[in-house]
Design a protein around this nucleic acid. Sequence first.
DNA 1: ACTCTTTCAATTTTCGAAAATATATATATC
DNA 2: GATATATATATTTTCGAAAATTGAAAGAGT
Lengths: 232, 232
Amino acid sequence: MKKTAGTRSPKQAKTGDPSSGQDVLSRLRNDIVSSVFEPETRLKFADLTKRYDVGIGTLREGLSQLVSEGFVTLEAGKGFKVAPVSAEELIEITEHFISLEKRALRDAIENGDDDWEANIVAVHHRLSLIESLPWEERMTRHSEWVQRHRDFHEALVAACSGRWLFRLRSIMFDQLDRYRFVTKRAPEGLGGRKFEEHSEIMAATLARDADLASKLIEKHISDTSERAIRLL
Amino acid sequence: MKKTAGTRSPKQAKTGDPSSGQDVLSRLRNDIVSSVFEPETRLKFADLTKRYDVGIGTLREGLSQLVSEGFVTLEAGKGFKVAPVSAEELIEITEHFISLEKRALRDAIENGDDDWEANIVAVHHRLSLIESLPWEERMTRHSEWVQRHRDFHEALVAACSGRWLFRLRSIMFDQLDRYRFVTKRAPEGLGGRKFEEHSEIMAATLARDADLASKLIEKHISDTSERAIRLL
DNA sequence: ACTCTTTCAATTTTCGAAAATATATATATC
DNA sequence: GATATATATATTTTCGAAAATTGAAAGAGT
């Protein structure tokens, strides 16, 4: 008689606002990607339970998932640590990501439908809103930019038919994201250029010009990473 | 039915006997790869705790790791299931694996040292011991063959300098392994041929002939998978 | 006969306490 | 003083009970 039917507990869906209502895994990954916990940092349960207000078991489940995603390392008996970063690793990740993203983009261009196109336009618009902001404000909302930038690239290849191609690409993209944050402080003059690049990539993709889109995205990624490598 | 659950059993240290003392994650993955649990099977905690004699939390940790490895799916609130299989997926996995394995092999051939060579010879010998067995006995020891076959391929690329190349390759190899079991029943006449193939690949690798080794391994993998696809 | 609600059983998910382990500190021995 | 041994502290790891969720069966109303 106490069971009031109809009221669902406030278990925010994955589409919830990113500020507070996310699940532990996402929040944890986000904090690592955002360098809230810097590389090599030990992740102690005592601290984390307080920070995220969840039990040890739940935490451990999330952590061990992040291990297989490559964000966290686990030394038996010594606990979890944030995975280290290095210029060499960034170079390798970039290489793999370019290779995968180009193939995924080709695949998507072949298979994409109207919804796919419409979504690309939509998320690109959201991205451009932030990118055209004055430098200072853009920096304060950097994590928001990262999210929209991720959404944009994901939208481009969303129609990719290969499940595993998409999956492998996403693993590499997440890794790159982390380096994006580690090297957050970037020179000012390039924001506008990047904005143009995204527009050009979108145009070529919607025009179904796989060769051009492929070429553009390769340059886009490799330029971005090259700059990051220098900052490392 | 002899294990009294109430008292805390003296948990074997990790240095305990390796025959049965493997960790849960490995045993679980092995049982899935070996099709002990067939695709789409629901994995209920009640059953698994009895089978592996571990707590729910430990189980959940292992399961969620297998999710990110692609062997298990998790539907929120409905629990864990063994990931489904399909001919399309096998085709795609094969494609990616060939691409990655070829690159990893080239990398290893460039960087491999004496220890690397010696290890290849050793594991190849162990593999050939099983492959030259009469058909019947070879089948009864199939899971052993799978293990040694995995060791052989891993030894070939062990000297690969790219951490992520090795990692991505291994993810795809594990997936292929599962299909190897699903399509276990194979035609008889080909065991000998495969034996030769492995020897040729080893020879080309030790001769540091990257082009030849690359060509051979591509044919080796694609032939094997093609056969498996037909049986699916 | 049909639909909507209620109740009950099965299962997942979460949590914190307790065991196992590693790290640091103190005490003894040569 | 240096090394080894013992004690204390901190942290990880494991476990099963309790809470939350789902799915199916029973009941009520039309």
